[in-house]
Design a protein around this nucleic acid. Structure first.
Length: 451
DNA sequence: GCATGATCATGC
DNA sequence: GCATGATCATGC
């Protein structure tokens, strides 16, 4: 075990340094920002030539960690190595790796004695938190923006076969007394890249099985490999909220929102650089919630898989819902042929809901109030069923007086259309305005009170 | 003040 | 082009 990070002053840190999830969530707050925007960096740490090790600065000033030895991962308690690396834009506007990701120096004397499983490479880099900043040589490193969500990379889970082979090949070459012949082209994903002073002043290193000195090298993940990781993190992973398959979804969800609970909408909006563009941007609070949850605009893949119905609810200072909750419009012709348990309304209210609740306080300021999963109790589903049956009856009887919210504690039916001319056919040959099932405003209020 | 009617912005 | 989630608007 390495003994770095022995500073016990971490008690007041805004994250738990023994938890990968907590470190990840904290790192995520950097997304969209530069280091200097988030913490004060004394000017003598800012290299005038726009060079320097951004990773060390992030570790010291953002994570408030002292840099220690090079043995073992940066966050030894969590077994997590922190990396920062540059990305640039390709012709299509996507992101690609600017260069290889250097992992750790290759010690020619030691590697020949190591096994893969206990290697110094795995010890240090088996789990890495990689932060991607947009490279621009004109900008000081502390002002470069972290443009992507951090990536949690687990070496043992990804491409392990190739990477272990690559490691073995490098080891074998050293064991054959050919450290001086190492080349990046020897391997596929993991390579032995040049590291250290180049040119005439370079100090070469001894190797164990040859008298020929070799250039110093480090393990690295090739730039092409990094570009693939970036591409992947841009697609599916962008909307993932879990780092580990065994984290309960409730926990992962709560963790994502924990940064924002109790804060004002304006504050959150500023933090996420996402602003309401027009006064009647009806989806704003939902979009904001999705950004808090995933950073993007899509429902997290895990919640999508679970069929979770995310709903934003806005309440007044008394905790009363401002509006009823709508569901998709229904088709009159289809409704009369449905049975309740196969109806689209049933299918919706059977789901697990994720409520994201904003409250406007007595001071008139709106804040993220609470976030909670919920599903409709059985008794209430019976009420919803009654409304559905009454609706079906009305359609069959050609009675356009569809169930009102005053007639049932849980649900009602109401228009939901482009305008009054936006109609659908009924079995009697006439056309009624397109309508939907809604959960009553008062019902939503009661549900929230019981959460 | 609330229920009900009527949209509207958004994203696929 | 259209369904959907969300909100606006009106009238009792």
């Amino acid at each position: 075990m390495s003994q770095r990070g022995t500073d016990r002053s971490g008690v007041g840190r805004p994250y738990d340094s023994s938890s990968i999830e907590s470190i990840y969530e904290f790192a995520r707050k950097l997304t969209g920002k530069s280091l200097a925007e988030v913490v004060y960096i004394p000017s003598h740490f800012v290299n005038p030539r726009n060079r320097g090790d951004l990773g060390s600065l992030v570790e010291a000033f953002y994570f408030e960690r002292k840099a220690g030895s090079d043995i073992g991962p940066d966050f030894s308690e969590a077994g997590l190595e922190l990396k920062t690396t540059g990305v640039i834009r390709d012709k299509r506007g996507g992101y690609i790796a600017k260069e290889r990701l250097v992992l750790t120096m290759i010690n020619y004397q030691d590697i020949v004695l190591e096994d893969w499983e206990t290697s110094s490479l795995l010890n240090k880099c088996s789990v890495m938190l990689i932060l991607f900043y947009l490279f621009d040589s004109r900008i000081p490193v502390v002002d470069r923006r972290f443009v992507l969500n951090p990536l949690l990379y687990r070496m043992l889970e990804e491409d392990i076969f190739e990477i272990q082979r690559d490691w073995q090949l490098i080891k074998n070459k050293v064991a054959d007394g050919k450290a001086h012949e190492l080349s990046e082209g020897d391997t596929f994903y993991l390579s032995a890249c040049r590291k250290g002073t180049g040119g005439p002043s370079e100090k070469l290193r001894r190797q164990p099985f040859s008298e020929v000195d070799a250039k110093s090298r480090a393990f690295s993940l090739k730039a092409s490999y990094m570009t693939r990781l970036i591409a992947r993190s841009q697609s599916d992973d962008e909307t993932k909220i879990r780092l580990s398959a065994t984290t309960p979804l409730e926990e992962a969800t709560a963790l994502r929102f924990s940064n924002f609970l109790g804060r004002t909408v304006l504050d959150i909006s500023t933090d996420l650089s996402y602003f309401k563009e027009s006064a009647n941007q009806k989806g704003f609070h939902r979009s904001l919630a999705l950004r808090m949850l995933t950073g993007g605009s899509q429902l997290p893949v895990e919640l999508a898989k679970a069929g979770v119905e995310m709903k934003t609810i806005r309440v007044d200072s008394m905790g009363r819902a401002r509006e009823a909750m709508s569901f998709p419009t229904f088709n009159y012709l289809r409704l009369i042929n449905e049975v309740w348990e196969e109806s689209s309304f049933f299918e919706k209210i059977e789901r697990k809901f994720l409520f994201v609740v904003y409250q406007t306080g007595a001071d008139g300021v709106e804040r993220l109030w609470k976030v909670s999963y919920w599903n409709m109790p059985f008794q209430d589903r019976l009420e919803a069923e009654a409304v559905w049956r009454a609706t079906k009856f009305c359609v069959l009887q050609k009675n356009p007086q569809l169930p009102k919210s005053s007639e049932n504690p849980v649900a009602h039916v109401r228009p939901k259309a482009k305008n009054a001319l936006d109609t659908l056919p009924t079995p009697h040959g006439d056309f009624w305005v397109r309508s939907a099932f809604w959960l009553n405003r008062t019902y939503i209020t009661d549900v929230l009170k019981a959460l």
